[in-house]
Amino acid sequence: MDTLSGVLKSVRLEGAVFLDAEFTAPWSMRGKYGMTSVKQQLAGAEHVVLFHFLTQGACRVRLAEGGDVIEVVAGDLILFPQDDRHLMGSDLHLAPLEADSLIDAATAVAADPEFVRIRHGGGGAATRFVCGYLACSRSLCRPLLEALPRVLRIPIGDGQASTLLRELLRVGVRESSASRPGAQSTLAKLAELMFVEALRRYVETLPPEVHGWLAALRDVQIGRALALLHEAPERGWTVDDLAREVALSRSLLATRFASLVGESPMQYLMRWRLALAARALRSGGDAISRVAERSGYETEAAFSRAFKREFGLPPSAWRKAPA
């Protein structure tokens, strides 16, 4: 299994598509995931990645606080990995409408409050898009989230896999609009598939000189090393063991791993084990001593010290704290 698939399988993404929107020029909207209806569905989520997929027309996008304006056309997927407030519109100089108010108003009269339709604008050229989200554990997604820009445009309009996703998405939106049984489950899976496809395309377009976790996936040996650590974090790994598995010398593995990923293999493994421990503490009832043992610590005290350094709270307080 490739590293990206391994991480995404581990984080247990919860995806959904919740909005079918059509805006006609001129228009401008300010949004974030946190609409009332979506908050209710994500009460326990630690982190949310919001996305918009344009199915028709074009618009402009930028972060609400400023920055570069991104031109978006039909077939483009826009991701906000850090859930930043952002602007979208035909003219970003217009005073923006708040997406929260539009969506909450539409939800109040929708036949299915988990999937709503919006029609708004000045009557000019139409832009249509669907919006969705992926909820995940922030601790488990840390390597991925830190490797992505705050706003990311990914064209997924070409290729057989992308064409299939687009067609399935359109079918899912039609079924949801008609309140057909099973449509929400279909859209949830499509949101996850679209996210994976988008990330694969992004990795393929990274310049050769770029470093970071996603860039490391393209390196045959370092990508394999990451995959091994994710597949068997409970194993008593050493740098020598890992080097033998990926057919590199110990020194070369250590140097290339640190250069690409930004930390040593053993530091990465420690943080991944602690991330898994953080999820286990929130989702399960195992004793802290048992979680510590699975995380590779000989004593609960040593585990607690390491956990607090990583997350700012001791394990017992983390377990009780809200997401």
Score class of each variant (00 low, 15 high):
T3L: 03
T3H: 02
L4E: 07
S10Q: 01
V11R: 02
G15Q: 00
V17K: 07
V17I: 14
L19C: 11
E22F: 04
K32Q: 15
K32H: 15
K39S: 13
L42S: 01
A45V: 08
L50A: 14
C59W: 08
R62K: 15
R62G: 08
I70Q: 07
I70K: 03
V73S: 14
I78K: 01
L79K: 13
F80S: 12
P81W: 09
G89D: 02
G89P: 13
D91W: 06
L92E: 06
L94F: 00
A99M: 11
A99N: 15
L102Y: 07
D104H: 05
A106R: 09
A108P: 11
A125E: 11
V130A: 09
G132Y: 07
Y133P: 08
C141W: 05
C141S: 15
L145F: 06
E146S: 11
V151G: 13
L152G: 08
I156S: 02
I156N: 10
G157E: 05
D158N: 01
A161S: 10
L165S: 10
G172Y: 13
G172F: 06
V173N: 04
S177Y: 11
S177R: 15
S185W: 06
V203N: 05
V210P: 05
G212W: 02
L214F: 07
L214S: 11
L214Q: 02
D219H: 14
Q221T: 13
H230C: 04
W237R: 06
D241K: 14
D241W: 12
D241H: 13
L253N: 11
S259I: 00
G262Y: 07
E263D: 11
S264P: 10
S264E: 09
Q267R: 14
Y268M: 02
R271F: 09
L274V: 13
A275T: 06
A278W: 07
A280N: 05
D286L: 11
V291P: 04
A292F: 11
R294T: 04
S295D: 10
Y297M: 09
T299H: 13
A301E: 15
A302C: 07
R309D: 00
R309I: 04
E310Y: 06
G312Q: 00
G312Y: 02
L313E: 12
A321L: 01
